[in-house]
């Protein structure tokens, strides 16, 4: 594996190797000296064409814990509006001898173009491209789900997939790269995915996806899924006739206090997940976000571990991570 561009093309073995490596990386975070020498002397560039402080600092933390040098390149807005092409930007960074480029871009496919055009020869990590994919988010979600199950069952996570688990993903599927990456990865790891969304926020062609589609969140939650993941509703969708009002969205597709109470009453073990940042009161109520079911902060912590694992595996080309860690 030279690049990490999508989860669609990850094999089960590759995914489990990343997750197992991430589990070991998590141990580093528990030590007083949170640092490994693995990537000493290597340079990681965070190339962010979209604002995303959370994802950027997660990658930055991950690279630094592996002792890599980190360059943050924030090209706010599109490269075209800046007057410099993606090609020139990427090649400029390559001239600085970057070993890996972590790219976040508003245009679907930009990371794949970097990886396939021959403009650069660094490892490319997709940190979110348009509405296409956000593979490390899906991997950190999978890590969180694995952790959730092992905690309940008292078993180890190592080497396991997510077989038999059921994950409900609710919200703006149409515009969500998180939904897409999760769908592919969760299926690869043996979990079942149910999408819950207003029909306006589902793409045409969704019937070909390996996911069940329902419009009724209560119906989906009544199955006591292992987790429910709420997707952020972008404010600009409010004005584009995707749904009539915020209030109606929250009532029909939000994780309201009532729906949380129903999960409690049913004795469900459902974890509540959110990729952040949250719109409290819209797709997720505060009581749900702050409830013991919430894994939101575990997801953030696991994000660093997963990104360490990805950087490590891509840059060391060492597919038997265990012998080093």
């Amino acid at each position: 594996m030279k690049h990490l561009l999508s989860t669609k093309n990850l094999t089960r073995d590759q995914a489990i190797e990343i997750l197992d490596t991430a589990d070991r990386m998590a141990d580093v975070g528990q030590q007083s000296v949170k640092k490994l020498p693995a990537l000493r002397g290597r340079t990681v560039v965070n190339l962010f064409f979209e604002d995303s402080t959370r994802t950027r600092i997660s990658f930055e933390t991950a690279a630094k814990r592996l002792s890599a040098d980190v360059i943050n390149f924030s090209a706010k807005g599109s490269s075209v509006s800046k007057g410099e092409s993606l090609k020139d930007t990427a090649q400029t960074l390559m001239a600085m001898e970057a070993d890996a480029v972590v790219i976040r871009h508003g245009a679907s496919g930009a990371p794949q173009q970097l990886a396939t055009t021959g403009w650069i020869d660094a490892a490319v990590l997709n940190a979110g491209d348009g509405k296409h994919e956000h593979p490390t988010q899906a991997l950190l979600d999978a890590m969180t789900l694995r952790e959730h199950r092992s905690k309940l069952a008292g078993t180890a996570t190592t080497g396991t997939g997510l077989d038999g688990m059921h994950v409900v993903i609710a919200g703006d599927i149409l515009h969500s790269r998180v939904a897409r990456s999760n769908m592919w990865l969760l299926n690869t790891l043996g979990a079942r995915v149910t999408f819950v969304a207003p029909p306006t926020l589902l793409p045409v062609g969704v019937e070909h996806w390996p996911a069940r589609i329902v419009f009724d969140l209560d119906q989906a939650l009544a199955q006591n899924p292992d987790a429910v993941m709420l997707l952020r509703v972008q404010r600009e969708r409010m004005h584009a006739a995707f749904f009539p009002s915020e209030a109606e969205y929250a009532r029909w597709w939000g994780l309201t206090p009532e729906r949380l109470a129903a999960l409690d009453a049913a004795g469900a073990t459902t974890a509540i997940m959110h990729p952040g940042p949250m719109n409290r009161g819209l797709e997720i109520s505060s009581v749900a976000a702050d409830s013991p079911r919430s894994t939101v902060l575990r997801q953030v912590a696991n994000g660093v571990s997963v990104r360490m694992a990805c950087l490590y595996l891509l840059l060391t080309g060492d597919n038997s991570a265990a012998q080093v860690l």
Partner: peptide, 16 residues
């Protein structure tokens, strides 16, 4: 619009 709206645009997240 960026490409034909259908199963490929759904996968790629490009406006149909």
């Amino acid at each position: 619009a960026q490409m034909n709206e259908g199963s490929v645009s759904a996968d790629l997240g490009l406006a149909g």
